[in-house]
Amino acid sequence: MKIWIVIAAFNEEKSIGRVIDVLKKQGYKNIVVTDDGSRDKTCAVAKAHGSYALKHCINRGQGAALQTGIDFALSKGADIVVTFDADGQHDASEIKDMIKPIYSGCDIVLGSRFINRNTKVPFFRKLILKGGAFICWILYGIKLTDTHNGFRALSRKAAKKVRITADRMEHASQIIEKTAKYRLKYTEVPVTIRYSDYSKKKGQTSLNAIKIFFKMLVYKFLK
């Protein structure tokens, strides 16, 4: 099975090379980085480290960048698409655990930082993430422990069905919404998230949660 790793990156020249190297060391050769309109050398660094690099000429958001990468991976015949963060938060050695359920018929595998007790999630972030999971349960009827985790694995069927049209961070909720809509088989797998100062700086501000919630309502009721 062809496994493709899709990474959305925005101004990640400092970390993207290392992330690609680690992935390659783990044996993943099919890597595509979507540079989402970075002002730095993200695209060049990604290419130099041997991955495919797509360049968004302007910033369109993580959801849009992931979909571009997924389209590319599908066009290259990907059987499994893994979405992975560019800031080094995810552990490449856990990809094998993420894709295992797909071999046994699962359509979408969602990483969860809350099943694994190794991840120490800052209190406020935990509150926001748990709130997000609760809202997803209410809106889409899917009960998960962690809904906004960028570490996911999708079968080819799921990658084709779950088209991300939510450009920004609300794409994570949209994936859950479409999982429910198309009745895709899903499961959660424990993953480790490494919170470094760099990843915290690059990650979501908790205030964005309000914006995401508003957009979730728009996508649910107006689109």
Partner: peptide
């Protein structure tokens, strides 16, 4: 319109590759 811009940006990125 935002959706259209995204589709356009995506198309350019894929075409360039």
């Amino acid at each position: 319109n935002q959706d259209k811009i995204t589709r356009l940006v995506r198309e350019i990125a894929l075409r360039d590759e």
